[in-house]
Design a protein around this nucleic acid. Structure first.
Lengths: 141, 141
DNA sequence: ATAATCCCGAGTTGCAAACTCGGGATTTGT
DNA sequence: ACAAATCCCGAGTTTGCAACTCGGGATTAT
């Protein structure tokens, strides 16, 4: 039940871009250094974020990446969707065919509850809530 | 964000024992066959369940395992706790030391929300809700 | 006695996630 | 015009750990 480092890195990178918003495009190198992420790996991940139109790139010298929209409009679920292609606790809950037990799988009730609970959190949490010096953090728990 | 097969197997095994309750001890072999779990692997897992006092063993010929208590009293969280030793989305939310960022980790808000949501579901779901021909399943969603 | 089971510490295997590499395309600064 | 800094991307390679096996001892019913 761990989040992959892919996901962790992607979220940290997006938060970083939110924090640096307005300061011009941020290079992969800079983001990687600030957030402590292997540079070439991040390059790969941020490519997925770009394809999902969550960030925009500026090429050439002094280029880099910027958030495509305001942090208040970006849901964490969008980030993870882009990077993982959906966050499901077990394949079972996704497609009934994937599970040999078919409809007769009693524990499916549990998978569905878990998926709901998780997706609810991811959908309701906006990037803006995760940036530094957000002093109202505590009440939002 | 997947559940490990350890967890999946353990839950299926516990559900199986709930379904076979009252029919005498169930051998690992029988459970494995019914639930489609590699036998020797299950033996390992069920050992953890026994140490956590969730099941009781009867040794010798015609031996096997039985639920230690009624399925209405066993929480899914107990099963996963026994098998995984806690279900945390990221180490960060567990101990502040584990994360180099320390207290200044903005995304921690997210980890905490996720952990809460997940633990809530696991804690509220009883084994009895997961057995077959539980016809009120749908409303419980 | 024999067979069926639990019990358990050590393996071994496989595979996907994590990370690297090489090199091309684009833009800026000088 | 050229060098340097970046994005871009398809192919690697590495590696950690979950998943699974093995061998053999202890216990009990028939």
């Amino acid at each position: 039940m761990k989040l992959s480092s892919r996901s962790l890195y992607a979220i940290h990178a997006m938060v970083d871009l939110a924090e640096q918003r307005g300061l011009g495009p941020q290079s992969v190198k800079a983001i990687a250094a600030r957030q402590n992420i292997p540079e070439q790996y991040l390059e790969q991940l941020i490519g997925s974020l770009r394809k999902a139109k969550l960030v925009e790139s500026v090429r050439g010298m002094n280029g880099g990446y910027e958030l495509a929209g305001g942090p208040e409009e970006i849901r964490v679920s969008e980030v993870l969707e882009a990077i993982e292609g959906g966050v499901r606790v077990t394949e079972c809950a996704l497609s009934k065919d994937a599970c040999a037990r078919g409809e007769n799988c009693a524990p499916r009730l549990l998978w569905e509850r878990l998926n709901r609970a998780i997706e609810n959190v991811l959908h309701e949490t906006m990037l803006s809530e995760l940036v530094q010096n957000n002093t109202i953090q505590e009440e939002l728990l």
